[in-house]
Nucleic acid binder design. Structure first.
Lengths: 143, 143
DNA sequence: TTGCTTGCAAAGGATTTGCAACATG
DNA sequence: CATGTTGCAAATCCTTTGCAAGCAA
């Protein structure tokens, strides 16, 4: 069994929550995705396996995943929240093409260090950050 | 007259739009604010001067300001959009306290340069970016 | 059995839009 | 006067929540 499923089930029992076929199914679908996904996209895929599932179950599941530390929110500012798995998937930022929407995960340790320093220079202790780089990818630049 | 008002009026006539007392009033109020403001906050202040004004007018005004290049959107991820004047107010990022919500404008030219390089290393031409640094300010850290 | 879960539909909060009356250029 | 503009309320969009019925432990 996938490690994420173990962790999720441990999380459930630790919190006195229940393992249900719906949660199991949604988690399975969620884990097949490599990149971020919206609640609606997740719902659409899950529905193919279980047409009786409700959207609310998806939203509630995603909250649990955040709570369990197995997912992260990604906000591209288009009014829809996206979710990405965080198990074995360390922090990173996103590079997004304004032309086609393609996204690339990026990390730059120097930037991260400088962010901490900037925060400290104002007396802040940095807890986290969000950084979205928008641009035009190679393909879209030529259009 | 404030330079922003000139620019805004030029923008209106160039687009065949009309100068109205409502737009004038909302702009006046907007310009008194130094930092970012939500549509609702702007609405509340404007209402004190003209109780008959509608929320829609505020939202429509803000769109015009973006269009005119006189305002920018700031998204702290709490579900409400904020707006800040952009005339004589160059690009910057935000440092936000998770404790009290205080925000500080920051810029770091080295980070900016590295962002461009990261994008380029993936074949992207960087057009813009968003960076939000979250942390605990000096005061909140002691609580 | 107890209490968490589910699907449904209604409710929420922020923002947008249709419309008829009104004002600007 | 032709077109924009306004306030209002209704409509949207995404997400959350109340509830009665259904399950897991």
């Amino acid at each position: 069994m996938k490690k994420e499923k173990e962790i999720f089930n441990q999380f459930l029992s630790r919190k006195n929550l229940r393992a249900t076929p719906q949660r199991d199914l949604v988690l399975d679908v969620f884990l097949t995705r490599e990149d971020h996904i919206t609640a609606e996209q997740l719902y659409d895929v899950v529905k193919k396996n279980d047409p009786s599932i409700g959207q609310a179950t998806i939203y509630r599941f995603l909250k649990l995943m955040l709570d369990a530390g197995l997912a992260r929110e990604v906000d591209f500012g288009d009014g829809v929240m996206r979710y990405e798995g965080s198990y074995n998937h360390p922090h990173h930022d996103h590079l997004i093409c304004r032309g086609c929407g393609k996204t690339i995960e990026v990390v730059d340790s120097v930037i991260e260090e400088l962010q901490r320093r900037v925060a400290e220079s104002f007396g802040f202790e940095l807890t986290d950050h969000e950084m979205y780089l928008y641009g035009l990818c190679e393909v879209c630049r030529k259009k």
